[in-house]
Design a binder for these strands. Structure first.
Lengths: 136, 136
DNA sequence: TTAGAAATTGACGTTTACGTAAACGTTAAC
DNA sequence: GTTAACGTTTACGTAAACGTCAATTTCTAA
């Protein structure tokens, strides 16, 4: 039920599969800013969105510093022209990075599919009883 | 000229953009096994291939332990049937992981493209002098 | 109201993946 | 024949990203 209510830290732990320590750590790093009700933290939908972005970045091997940069790109609306150009450059950097990762993934997947085929072939040969060293 | 000659560590440093410390570290971790000529290391094409695989894995955010597993998948030819099934499972795990990363990349790329468009739109508006707050 | 569950706050510990520095051995050039 | 340049070994250092207590507070259900 992550509709649009506020959530406790335990909710996030359950929903995202991370520890409370991790969530507080991200906050200490300035990447989450939950509301405070007395001592307790209250997480709004925007916090959930941010956490989701952080975890996605982690899965892709970005450091927290890089993830912070990426998220900043999302929410920044710079006024001046110089800033805008700088931003566009940053965006291109990140895009190039992601394209490289995509290529790396395609290559690795292809290789793994090849290994997979070879394995299944072996399996088939093992399953065929009357075919011992046919090609030797 | 990485044709099929042997190379010194300095060659790898130059060709792959990593430090000698890193290369020796990977060897200490058992991920590279260069020939020894006296005290010096000599790197063969297979070492270059492995290093390339390691670096590709790093770009994708895999730990060295995971990369080791993946590379092991490449070169393993297990005999028994139980081993084969275990292998196929491992391969599926890795593939699922890579597919997840691919999805993450697609999402992030789409979002960045959106930010890019918005930025360029801003730029256009700034470049148009006689259009101050038209939609206000 | 009291025991237990959940949350918070330090504070120190740990793992990964190297960096950095010191001390030493080889070899090629001058 | 010595001085760079390159390579090696050993060992301690470090940044990132949390883990793991311990002590305390806060909330909640019986």
């Amino acid at each position: 039920m992550p509709g649009n209510k506020v959530h406790t830290i335990a909710d996030l732990v359950r929903d995202f599969g991370v520890t409370a320590r991790t969530i507080r750590f991200y906050e200490a790093e300035g990447m989450l800013t939950p509301e405070r009700q007395g001592q307790q933290r209250l997480y709004h939908p925007r916090d959930r969105v941010r956490l989701k972005l952080i975890l996605r970045g982690k899965r892709l091997g970005f450091t927290l510093a890089e993830i912070r940069e990426i998220i900043d790109l999302y929410h920044a609306a710079p006024g001046e022209l110089g800033q805008l150009q700088y931003f566009l450059d940053k965006i291109q950097e990140r895009r190039a990075d992601l394209e490289q990762k995509r290529k790396d993934i395609e290559l690795t997947l292809k290789e793994l599919e090849e290994v997979d085929r070879t394995c299944r072939q072996h399996l088939l040969e093992l399953a065929r009883p009357g075919s011992k060293e046919a090609a030797e």
